[in-house]
């Protein structure tokens, strides 16, 4: 079972790297959501279901919502155009 822990840990780090490396903001937010998903699976491997539940709720649900909300506000303040990136 150790191999799955390694696979999901690598996927977590990879999606965190995508979130940092990309230039588009929406992609960055989505990658942060994916990172929360894999991190909660890693927490399950480490036998911490409560932490995993919190990570799923906060890291993947609420953070995505708040970041998209803030991004939308910033866009509509700066220009009335569409949200392209």
């Amino acid at each position: 079972m150790e191999i799955f822990l390694i696979i999901f840990a690598v996927l977590t780090v990879a999606s965190a790297l995508i979130a940092v490396a990309t230039t588009k903001k929406a992609v960055s937010i989505l990658a942060a959501g994916v990172m929360g998903l894999f991190a909660s699976i890693v927490f399950i491997f480490l036998a911490a279901p409560d932490v995993a539940m919190t990570e799923a709720a906060i890291g993947s649900g609420l953070t995505t919502f708040i970041f998209f909300f803030a991004l939308n506000r910033v866009k509509s303040d700066r220009a009335q155009g569409g949200a392209d990136d």
Binding site: A26, G33, A52, M53, A56, A57, S60, G61, F68, F69
Partner: peptide, 17 residues
């Protein structure tokens, strides 16, 4: 239970995006 919470919240993430 983690799976249940996850299923509902990833749906909300997709909806918001």
């Amino acid at each position: 239970d983690v799976a249940l919470v996850y299923g509902l919240l990833s749906f909300i993430g997709v909806l918001v995006a």
